[in-house]
Computed example of a mutant assay.
Amino acid sequence: MTDREILVSRTIDAPRDLVFEAFTEVRHLSRWWGPDGFTTTTHAFRFTVGGEWTFVMHGPDGTDYPEWITWTEIVAPERITLLHGETPGDPNAFETVLTFTADGTATHVEMRTVFPTKAQRDEAAEKYHAIEGGRQTLGNLAAYVTATAR
C-alpha cells in the first residue's frame, strides 16, 4: 500500500454474485450506498465501462454532496474499477478498485482507493473521515445484502 491509498475491507455473509449485483443496479445502490445517516438521489446511472453514475449524497446534517462516478473496468463478479469525483473531468477525482472474493458462502470485499496525491489522501482521511466512512459503507452493504439473501 502506498501513502496515497486507503484500503477498507469486509467479509460479508452473502454469496459473491449477490454482493457484486448490489453494486451494479441503482435499485440496490440507492438502498445502501454511503456512510451511516446518508441518503442518495440518483440523476443518471449506466453500469457499463465508460458509463456514468451522477448522484447527490445527502448528509445527516442536510449538506448535499454532488458526486460522479464512471466505471473504467468491470470483470463480473470479481472486480470493478471506477473513477470518482464531484463532476466529469474533476482534477481531484480518485480511483477505486473493488474486488470480490468468494470465501465459502461469504464474500470478501476489498475497496482500495488511490488518490492523485498524498495530500488529497490525507485530506480525505482527516477532513472527510474516508476510512470510517468506507467501513460504514461496507457495513451498510453487508446489512442490505444479508437481509436480501434471506
Rank of each mutant, 00 (worst) to 15 (best):
D3C: 02
R4V: 09
E5I: 01
I6D: 01
L7Y: 10
V8S: 01
I12F: 00
A14K: 12
A14T: 09
A14N: 02
R16V: 08
V19Y: 02
A22M: 02
V26C: 02
V26Q: 14
R27K: 15
H28C: 06
L29F: 06
F38K: 11
T39Q: 09
T39V: 07
T42S: 12
H43M: 12
F45N: 03
R46E: 15
R46F: 02
R46A: 15
R46N: 14
R46S: 15
T48Q: 14
G51T: 12
E52T: 15
E52M: 00
W53P: 08
T54F: 00
T54K: 09
V56M: 11
M57A: 09
M57N: 06
M57S: 09
H58N: 14
G62E: 14
G62M: 06
D64S: 15
E67Q: 12
T70C: 11
W71H: 08
W71A: 07
I74C: 03
R79Q: 12
I80S: 00
I80H: 00
L82V: 09
L82N: 14
H84V: 03
P88D: 14
P91I: 01
P91H: 02
F94S: 10
V97K: 01
T99Y: 00
T99S: 13
T99C: 01
F100T: 07
A102M: 02
A102S: 13
D103Q: 11
T105L: 07
A106L: 06
T107D: 07
E110D: 13
E110K: 10
M111V: 12
R112F: 03
P116C: 05
K118E: 13
K118P: 13
A119P: 00
R121P: 05
D122N: 09
E123K: 15
E123P: 00
A124M: 12
A124T: 12
A124L: 06
E126Y: 07
E126F: 13
Y128D: 08
G133A: 10
G134Q: 06
R135L: 13
T137E: 08
G139M: 02
L141D: 09
L141W: 01
A142R: 09
A143D: 11
Y144E: 08
T146A: 04
R150L: 13
R150E: 14
